[in-house]
């Protein structure tokens, strides 16, 4: 390699390195803004104030869904496999909503520490399989659970 090319190679390398470092610093600095949702653990740790609007993500606890007889009002618990937050919602749930399903809800905490949601989004998992296989796994008790994926990836400051 001629000295000139070597020099250019080093320059291009430094350019990429410098940009990567800059972007890494920026992304780390804005990390809490890049998180789409807080986990029930964040709520338990008190990193969200009552009345502050935020998104809450977690898995719907089995057997926790209570539907109103007269309206579409619904109440259910969300968990990250450690902490639990109760969610109230008064509109139509997405099709994928079910017990054991990961969801992301938008809303705020009330004084009782319940989460009043104004919007509920379903988060589907990364597993794809035919229904028969899912059934067989369920029977064998080897169905992968998604709850742990909602554990906070960093402690998010308010």
């Amino acid at each position: 390699m001629t000295p000139k090319r070597k020099q250019r190679l080093i320059l291009v390398g430094l350019l990429v390195l410098g940009c990567s470092a800059t972007v890494a610093l920026v992304v780390t600095a804005f990390r809490s803004n890049l998180e789409l949702f807080h986990s029930p653990g964040d709520v338990a740790a008190g990193s969200v104030a009552p009345g502050q609007r935020f998104r809450l993500g977690g898995m719907v606890v089995e057997g926790s869904v209570i539907r109103s007889m007269e309206s579409v009002d619904v109440q259910f618990d969300l968990t990250d496999s450690v902490d639990v937050v109760t969610v109230r919602f008064d509109s139509i749930l997405p099709d994928l909503f079910s017990e054991g399903q990961g969801i992301v809800a938008k809303g705020q905490l009330n004084e009782q520490g319940e989460f009043i949601a104004s919007e509920v989004l379903a988060k589907h998992d990364e597993n794809y399989m035919p229904p028969e296989i899912a059934e067989a796994l369920q029977k064998a008790g080897r169905m992968p659970s998604t709850a742990a994926t909602f554990n906070s990836k960093t402690s998010v400051d308010p």
């Binding site: 988060k123 589907h124 998992d125 990364e126 990836k153």
Partner: peptide, 21 residues
């Protein structure tokens, strides 16, 4: 993987093999 996200994690390019039938 780095952030809490609505998009699910990788199905195929992961260390423990693809999670797809």
């Amino acid at each position: 993987e780095w952030f809490n996200s609505l998009h699910q994690p990788a199905t195929i390019t992961r260390a423990d093999g693809p999670k797809m039938h």
